[in-house]
C-alpha cells in the first residue's frame, strides 16, 4: 500500500516505512541508542531528499527520547541541572547547525558534508567502542576476576578542573566548570542539526570520559538534552526550511515504539560487552558503506539538484 508523503513529495510503501521504524526501533531498544545514525542514511537511501530526511528524523527522535527521558525522570536517574546546562549549549548549537545546513545546501554540498560527518564520527565512535568491548570480552574470557574500577579510587585531576565558572551538580556529585558542558552541548547540537541524529553516541562518551558523570545518570541526562535539542531542531527546520514531514515522522514513530519494546526484551538476553561489540560492528558497517559510496566511481558523473527557492 503506497502512501504519498506531503512534504517529501513522493510515494512510498507504508509497510516499508513501518518496517524501517520497527527495525531501527528494535536495534535502538536493544542497544539503548537513538538510532538516528541508522535511520537518516536509510531514509536517504530510499529516496527521501536529504534535507527532509534530516529534519524529519529529528522530529522522530523527539518522540523516542521523550518516552525514554520520562522513564528516567520517574526513576530519578536524570540530572536536570546538568541537562539544562548542556541544553543551553545544545540550543545554540542547533540554531547554528540549521543555518550551516541551509548554507551548505545552497552550495550544493550538503550530501557530501552529511556523508563525511557520518564516516568521520561513526568511524571514530565505532572503532573505539569495538576495541573497548573486544578488550572487555577478552578480559572476561581470561576470567581474572578483576572488577573494572570506575567507582574505586579518587578521580584524577585534569585540565577540566582548572577551568573557571564552577558550579555544583548535586545529583551527579560534581563540582566543575560550566564551560565543558556548554561546549559539549553546542557541539552535539550542531551535529544533530546537520546529521539528523540525537547525538547520544557522542554525548554519552563525552559525559563519562570528559565530565566524569556517574554512569547511572548519564543516559537519562543525555536523553533529556536530546529531547529538547531535537525539539528545537524540528521547530527551526520546519519554520525556516519547511522540511519536516509529519506523516513520515509519525509512521516511523509508530514502528519505532513497537520495535523498541521487542528490542529491549531481546537485549536482556545478551551480555553487555557483547551487545556493545555488536553495536560497534553495526556502526562500523554504516560507516564503511557511506565511505565506500564516497570513493567508488559514481554511476552518473553528474548530479541534478533543485535550485533557487529553498525547500521547493
Amino acid at each position: 500500500m503506497q502512501i504519498y508523503l506531503p512534504i517529501a513529495e513522493l510515494s512510498v510503501n507504508i509497510f516499508l516505512l513501518l518496517g524501517l521504524g520497527a527495525g531501527v526501533g528494535f536495534l535502538s531498544g536493544m542497544f539503548g541508542v537513538g538510532g538516528g545514525f541508522l535511520m537518516t542514511p536509510l531514509l536517504m537511501f530510499i529516496g527521501i531528499p536529504p534535507a527532509v530526511a534530516v529534519s524529519t528524523e529529528a522530529n522522530q527522535i523527539v518522540a523516542s527520547s521523550a518516552s525514554g527521558a520520562l522513564a528516567h525522570w520517574r526513576r530519578r536517574t536524570l540530572d536536570a541541572k546538568m541537562g539544562g546546562l548542556l541544553l543551553v549549549g545544545g540550543a545554540s548549537g542547533s540554531i547554528f547547525g540549521v543555518q550551516l545546513f541551509a548554507f551548505l545546501r545552497s552550495l550544493g554540498q550538503i550530501d557530501l558534508i552529511i556523508s563525511l560527518s557520518y564516516v568521520g564520527f561513526l568511524g571514530i565512535i565505532g572503532g573505539l567502542m569495538f576495541f573497548e568491548s573486544a578488550r572487555a570480552i577478552w578480559r572476561r574470557s581470561r576470567n581474572t576476576g578483576r572488577t573494572p574500577g570506575s567507582g574505586a579510587g579518587r578521580r584524577r585531576r585534569t585540565w577540566i578542573d582548572s577551568l573557571p565558572f564552577k558550579m555544583r551538580f548535586p545529583r551527579s556529585g560534581l563540582y566543575i566548570s560550566v564551560i565543558p558542558p556548554v561546549a559539549i552541548g553546542f557541539f552535539v547540537g550542531t551535529l544533530a542539526a546537520i546529521m539528523g541524529v540525537g547525538g547520544g553516541f557522542v554525548m554519552v562518551p563525552a559525559m563519562i570520559y570528559i565530565l566524569r558523570m556517574p554512569t547511572n545518570v548519564v543516559v537519562g541526562t543525555s536523553l533529556f538534552q536530546i529531547l529538547f535539542v531535537t525539539a528545537l531542531t524540528t521547530f527551526l527546520q520546519a519554520g525556516q526550511n519547511q522540511t519536516v514531514d509529519v506523516v513520515l515522522a509519525m509512521l516511523l514513530t509508530v514502528g519505532g515504539v513497537i520495535g523498541a519494546q521487542f528490542g529491549a526484551r531481546a537485549g536482556r538476553h545478551i551480555k553487555a560487552e557483547e551487545l556493545r561489540a555488536l553495536l560497534a560492528f553495526m556502526v562500523l558497517a554504516v560507516c564503511l558503506k557511506l565511505g565506500w559510496d564516497l570513493v567508488i566511481t559514481p554511476a552518473d558523473m553528474f548530479v541534478v539538484l533543485p535550485h533557487g527557492e529553498e525547500g521547493h
Binding site: A63, A66, G68, L236, Q237, A238, A249, T253
Partner: peptide, 19 residues
C-alpha cells in the same frame, strides 16, 4: 512556525503515550 510547534507537540505526545 506553527506547523513546527505542532510537529514537536505531536511527537512529545506520542512519546508520552508510548511511555
Amino acid at each position: 512556525w506553527f506547523y513546527g510547534l505542532f510537529c514537536v507537540v505531536l511527537a512529545m505526545l506520542a512519546g508520552y503515550v508510548a511511555n
